[in-house]
Simulated assay, not measured.
Amino acid sequence: MIQNHLSLIMGNKVGDITSIAEISKFRVGQVYAASVMYGYFLKRVDQRFQLEKTMKVLLNEAEEENSVQQTTMDNARPGIEEDTSQGMSHPEVSTWPGGDVSPGGYGYGIKATRLRNYVMSLDGDTLQRYATIRSKEAISIIEKHTEALFGRPEIVVTPEGSVSKDENVKISFGGLKKLVLEAVTFGSFLWDVESYVDSRYHFVLN
């Protein structure tokens, strides 16, 4: 799932570590903050995934494999069409190989990891809730950390309107990849710290 996140940001340059890109510092900051939130989301949803595995709520390995195979076979049958245009899915599902999402939530034709299968099986409301930062303190940490790294864009008011005077920076795709991975890791640690502090001070509302 992290590899898919990298692909969304870098496109076909994921494997290119030497090419240099020129991008606004503000945009790099946005990518960094979004990746922190993605790492936070992954750690949060993985915690629930591990809990349900421990409680044996989820299918076992063999049952899950059969479920994926059955879904693939059902989708491959001629004369059967499913309208999934109204369905809600994880924001990154549509970019995965195979494109479509089956009614059961599994990506068509994808040999996915179990965590990815689990995420794709969640409904839209649950995904939205798990993708939301729980406390204003954590939001403040993300904002201040990102601003400390990339600064705040300068806004100049002109007669025509507000114009951002943001400087461009040159960064290799290898450096951008490391930056994204660092941000995802930071988001994962942020979830751990927030949960630890909440266990003592109970400041998280949801």
Rank of each mutant, 00 (worst) to 15 (best):
V156L: 11
T71H: 07
I17Y: 10
D16I: 01
G124N: 08
G151K: 05
E194N: 08
Q70F: 06
I2E: 15
G79V: 04
L42F: 10
I20H: 08
F49Y: 15
S140E: 09
M10H: 09
D46L: 07
I2T: 10
Q30S: 11
E137F: 05
E167L: 03
R152G: 00
Q50A: 14
W191F: 15
Y201E: 13
Y40G: 02
I9D: 01
L42S: 05
E194R: 06
N66G: 14
D198R: 07
D46N: 13
K136P: 00
T146M: 04
S135M: 06
R200L: 11
I17A: 12
R77T: 04
R116G: 01
G15C: 02
V169M: 15
R27H: 12
A112C: 03
G87K: 10
D198Q: 07
L115M: 06
N66K: 13
P78G: 01
D192M: 06
T185L: 05
Q70S: 14
P91W: 10
S162F: 12
S85D: 11
V180P: 02
V57N: 13
K165H: 14
G175K: 10
S24M: 05
G104T: 06
F189W: 07
V163G: 01
S7Y: 08
S199E: 15
S188A: 15
D16T: 06
S162Q: 13
D125M: 11
E63I: 05
G124M: 11
P78L: 02
H202S: 15
